[in-house]
């Protein structure tokens, strides 16, 4: 479903913790619906948004649905570029080891499984944001 052949660079910026407010969950819903539009999509995780990608989330104690497994399915929705800001991780005592593995299958390379996730510093992320046609910030 492309819009008369228009293909834009579209970045979703996720800034909030996964629970506590609904922003993270509803942002993910936009990403999944948006995948049908065949745009050049990327996701960025900054500030408390980096917690959205942490491993082994368990929501039993708060009575909310643990929606974190959905991030691992993003590769199936052709989301291949997921940026995590290095400074946000460091400020929270997190490393890439604390994050879920996120991959996609590259049909141009015999369906090889490749990493979607990249750690970038804030200046690189700023450059990436500057290259976008649309930035959706949640």
């Amino acid at each position: 479903m492309s819009e008369e052949g228009i293909i834009k660079k579209l970045m979703y910026v996720n800034r909030k913790a996964p629970y506590g407010t609904i922003y993270a969950l509803e942002s993910l819903e936009v990403v999944l619906i948006g995948a049908a539009f065949d745009q050049q999509v990327s996701l960025a995780f900054v500030d408390d948004g980096v917690y959205q990608l942490t491993r082994s989330q368990n929501t039993d104690g708060i009575g909310m649905k643990n929606f974190s497994p959905t991030y691992a399915a993003l590769g199936d929705y052709d989301v291949r570029h997921i940026y995590v800001e290095r400074e946000s991780l460091e400020a929270r005592g997190l490393t890439v080891e604390d994050l879920m593995p996120l991959t996609y299958e590259d049909e141009d390379d015999d369906w090889a499984e490749k990493e979607s996730l990249r750690i970038v510093d804030s200046s690189e992320l700023a450059t990436l944001m500057g290259e976008q046609d649309v930035v959706l910030s949640f």
């Binding site: 819009e3 834009k8 579209l10 619906i33 948006g34 539009f37 649309v134 959706l136």
Partner: peptide, 20 residues
């Protein structure tokens, strides 16, 4: 549906967000 948001982002010259 949410498709209306994505379509607006594609069709508009600028998408301006108001919120936190």
């Amino acid at each position: 549906g949410l498709g209306q948001l994505i379509e607006a982002a594609i069709q508009s010259d600028r998408l301006v967000t108001f919120g936190d």
